[in-house]
Amino acid sequence: MTWRVRIADSAGAAAGLLVLAFALAWVGYKAFGAGFGVNGGVPDWIRVTLSGLTLAGLYFVIASGFTLIFGLMRVVNMAHGSLYLLGAYAAFEFQQHQFVSWGWGVVLSTLLVGFFGAVMHQLFLRWNQGQELRQALITIALAFIFGDQMLAYFGGAQHYVRPPDALEGNADLGIFCNTGGIFAGCLTFPWFRFVAIGAAVVVALGLVVVLKKTRFGMIVRGGVDDGAMVSALGVNIQAANALAFFIGSALAGLGGALAGVFLVIAPGEDADFLLKALVVVIVGGMGSLGGAALGALALGMIETWAPQYLPGAWSNYSILLTFLLLVFVLSVRPFGLFGRAT
């Protein structure tokens, strides 16, 4: 890299930080500028921030699976969104047929999708290991096929999964109480959304432990750095690949089963969540768990803060912001915030 590029990089990064600082200052002003009373911006700030954290948690669960698969195998699994949707529908079906309790439904959906992903890997992706583009195209095709099959089987209507009774309903936070209007009563937030945030933390901790403390984690970390070398050292890379694909797919399934409760299950969500996962891991850097966490946080907060805090008519363009973030990060850091050239 030449010195010119470095200067351009620093200038770009500086501009990025400046924009970020301005955005945060703007949100802070809008949230706290009108005081801390019930009529100020604080109650809404709490609402949208908690919603944003929920979404960030969900995005992290899904994207961590995506980035794990990519980190070890360099497979860009464009069918990851389909696995997410499959997990959601599976949880829905388990509940509809009153097959098992809600909790077991989530566990079973997660395992089912993990298994499904592992089979997909063995059938379609094992023999062309290393041909990134071909695998991306194959998984695009698979995503289309899965999407159509799910539409044919589950229909086009929207569904959602009912949470267990203990988590149904809202947590009354007992602060900022309104006496009238649409938002009469104290500040509330759905119990289940707290669960989603908790699940993300658990998944993150679990993945860190697995990656740092287990032999499998060692192989994955080695594989991210130099897959050929790991394989040359006599490690059964195929087994590790299969396991990584199982875990990565299972995480997509888990995300689906959780999202089925507080979002909706509908055809087309597969493509949407694939895009979300892509944005998260590209911003954070493919293969990096910390990057995925940061990317998920950025995406979740932008999605809920933007409509709330963009001035007036601009809130219609909030959806564009997430993709502008992506383009900006990639133009300054071509491999994402924590990514490395491979």
């Binding site: 360099r74 860009v76 990134e132 583009l133 991306a136 895009l275 892509l278 944005v279 590209i282 493919m286 993709f323 992506l326 383009v327 990639l330 071509p334 491999f335």
Partner: peptide, 12 residues
């Protein structure tokens, strides 16, 4: 940006 990252960027 090259390779698979280019694919993603252009998708975005």
């Amino acid at each position: 940006t090259t390779g698979i990252y280019f694919l993603m960027l252009t998708l975005a």
